[in-house]
């Protein structure tokens, strides 16, 4: 096992959908995508954003793009013009997700890294 950051095997972009943010992560390889599909669960993402995301986390799979799309409900302090937060649109949530530390088998990491 190798302790890595998600950013070593995926890139990301995030934005807002009402009071939810979406964070899409895109794996650099098919091997990385398949490992993440198994291990990057909504529960794990919710735990990672525990101080930001106050609602449930939904996950959608987009295998053709090697992407997982996470919807972080109740994470923008009301969203739109109701929010008082600096990041009222979740623009930085993608980079926040990429900070996650993961224990990845060395063989997988070898194929999955950028």
């Amino acid at each position: 096992m190798e302790r890595i950051r998600l950013s070593e095997i995926a890139h990301a972009r995030s934005g807002d959908k009402g009071d939810a943010s979406n964070a899409g992560i895109v794996a650099y390889s098919r091997e990385g995508y398949e490992w993440l599909q198994q291990h990057l669960t909504p529960e794990r993402v919710q735990q990672h954003f525990h101080a930001i995301c106050k609602g449930p986390v939904e996950r959608y799979e987009v295998p053709n793009l090697l992407a997982l799309n996470f919807i972080l409900h109740d994470s923008l302090g009301g969203g739109g013009s109701e929010s008082l937060k600096t990041d009222a649109q979740g623009k930085t949530h993608g980079l926040g997700l990429l900070q996650m530390e993961l224990d990845v088998p060395e063989a997988i990491f070898g194929q999955a890294r950028k």
């Binding site: 890139h11 990301a12 934005g15 979406n22 895109v26 959608y60 987009v62 992407a67 799309n69 919807i71």
Partner: peptide, 16 residues
């Protein structure tokens, strides 16, 4: 492909 994919997942909901 990476810069375009980034934008495809921007503000994405149910991809289907």
């Amino acid at each position: 492909v990476d810069t375009v994919t980034s934008q495809l997942v921007y503000e994405m909901g149910d991809p289907r």
